[in-house]
């Protein structure tokens, strides 16, 4: 095997070394642009407050200045809870502003600026594309312990969503995955079309984190808590950790990041879609 690799290398030697140089160069450039050091800015404000502007939208103020999106628009959110959560994120920054810990702010910016310029239909299609390769639809044949674990943990969620939306999804251990009927897609498309652009932004974020439409909908529909959804999403990894041990700087690091992102996305969907019900309840009191 090693000999094979060596031969391959001598054969494509020039190409490989060239591509390596290229990728390292790109990595370096990427690092300059996205490295943690350069994306952190000094905290340039003292206090954070919120205010209600025109149209009932809430704004976030840093000292006396209004927060703006990266595109230069005024940063506005539809309800108080979201504004407070965003303000808390800005307050949480100590000496430097660490944008990679401010998931709700990022999601609001994405929803406001819509940098990919997509409409709702395109976003729904993008979300539904994950169903074809949904994590919990793809099962393993071995080892037996993991097969059992996937069956016991994933099947209940799959049954739940099939009952809840009255659809067929199924699971498969073949590389092609299960055959998902067209009606299933139609049902989900219809359901998702009731979401606003903001909720879809949040939902898409959760789906891309958990790598599963089923788990994301279970989280948004409050069938699962964030911890449960993240655990189910990382089921194979957790199984391997039981065998080989846990490494804090890789496994725990990933898990906390995933939890934070999934929680932010779910909260964003709830807060941006349910402002009316919350308002009504406050007035009754």
């Amino acid at each position: 095997m090693f000999r094979g690799i060596a031969r391959l290398q001598s054969h494509f030697g020039g190409f490989i070394s060239h591509s390596k140089v290229c990728s390292r160069h790109q990595q370096y450039r990427g690092a300059l642009k996205y490295s943690t050091a350069s994306t952190e800015r000094k905290r340039f404000y003292q206090d954070v407050s919120i205010s209600q502007g025109e149209g009932g939208l809430f704004e976030v103020n840093l000292d006396k200045r209004k927060l703006k999106t990266p595109n230069g628009q005024l940063f506005t959110v539809p309800n108080e809870a979201l504004a407070i959560a965003v303000a808390t994120e800005w307050e949480a920054q100590k000496d430097t502003i660490k944008f990679y810990t401010m998931h709700l702010t990022t999601l609001c910016n994405t929803a406001l600026d819509n940098p990919t310029q997509r409409n709702k239909d395109q976003m729904i299609s993008a979300a539904l594309k994950f169903l074809e390769t949904d994590t919990i639809c793809y099962r393993v044949d071995e080892p037996p312990g993991l097969v059992e674990l996937q069956k016991n943990e994933w099947d209940p969620v799959l049954h739940w969503i099939e009952d809840r939306y009255n659809v067929t999804i199924g699971s498969s251990s073949s590389i092609l995955g299960p055959e998902i009927p067209e009606e299933t897609n139609d049902t989900f498309r219809q359901h998702l079309s009731s979401y606003t652009l903001w909720s879809l932004t949040g939902l898409e974020f959760v789906i891309s984190q958990l790598k599963s439409l089923v788990l994301s909908l279970a989280l948004i529909d409050r069938h699962l808590s964030v911890d449960q959804a993240v655990l189910l999403s990382r089921l194979e990894e957790e199984y391997q950790i039981q065998h080989w041990g846990n490494v804090e700087w890789a496994h725990d690091y990933d898990m906390y990041e995933l939890r934070a992102r999934a929680a932010a996305g779910a909260l964003f969907v709830h807060l941006s879609s349910e402002s009316s019900t919350v308002k009504r309840k406050l007035m009754q009191d």
Partner: peptide, 22 residues
């Protein structure tokens, strides 16, 4: 519960980030 998870996970993630990756 989701908000609690967001706050706790962000704090833990940042602690690990500063310890190992930052």
């Amino acid at each position: 519960l989701t908000y609690l998870c967001l706050l706790a996970s962000t704090r833990n993630h940042l602690a690990l980030h500063n310890l190992y990756h930052g």
